[in-house]
Amino acid sequence: MKSVVRRYFANRATLGVAILLVCVGAAVFAPFLANQNPYDLAQLNIMDSGLPPGSEGWDGHYYWLGTDEQGRDLLSAILYGLRVSLFVALASTACALVVGVSVGLFAAYRGGAFDALLMRVVDLQLSFPSILIALILLAAFGPGLDKVVLAITASQWAYFARTIRSSAQAERSREYIQAAQVLRYSSLRIMIVHLLPNSVAELGVVVAVEMASAVALEATLSFLGIGLPITQPSLGLLIANGFSFMLVNKYWISVFPGLVLMAVLISFNMIGEHLRKINEPGYAA
């Protein structure tokens, strides 16, 4: 039995996908899985505040992972928090993908001084720590879900631009692109129909890795109290809320959301690592 399990999970990517599927499922179906809506104050019971994991509540309710200081069921809070975290990561990675791919493809296709200038900007941005870029933007725009998405997008698009540009540039010199130019297809058509599909392999890796760093960055910003507002608690905010209670030994309020956060991040990185291996030349399945 053990060997079967081990063989099946020998491939880290399989394990990553499995964890991820569970997390996404839990996030999507959170309203059906959770036994309370943690943000409906009417459903909370202040008598149940700060209960350790596995306690029975005042009204006979069973709290698997305990409750926080407001009597909120932690399991429900985590399910809803996962929803917010994954949504922010998905939205910002998608935006970064669109912006980065557009810029990168355009730079590769136009070439010349235009390309040089854009790549200079990309290099400059990549040399800055992502947290610094996010700090600048959030300091300017203040907290809020849309602003967090904007800040993460701004600190990520350059990775996509860099990746697509280098692979597109290799493709650009291929004969079929030159043939398409001779046939006078429009620039846009050539870029989208020919360059993009052939540059997609490397993008998969970046998407997986950037999803992980988007989740981490959002959690960090929210933990610092400059990310999401208190009304949209992501995993990072849950951890921040529990932080002060850790010192009085109510560690579960921070630890359980943290473990879930960890699982999400590791699974994305495992998938990314596997995709990278597949893309390497000389890979044999």
């Binding site: 992980a212 933990f223 951890i239 030994n249 560690y251 921070s254 956060l261 991040l265 590791i266």
Partner: peptide, 29 residues
């Protein structure tokens, strides 16, 4: 290296506090 890219700094910081400050008291929190 896999763990370090996967675990956000703040989360590791919390773990360090739990283990080395709260539970064992070797270092201040």
């Amino acid at each position: 290296s896999l763990l370090s890219v996967s675990l956000p700094t703040f989360w590791i910081g919390l773990m360090l506090i739990i283990v080395f400050a709260i539970e064992t008291g070797i270092f201040p929190a």
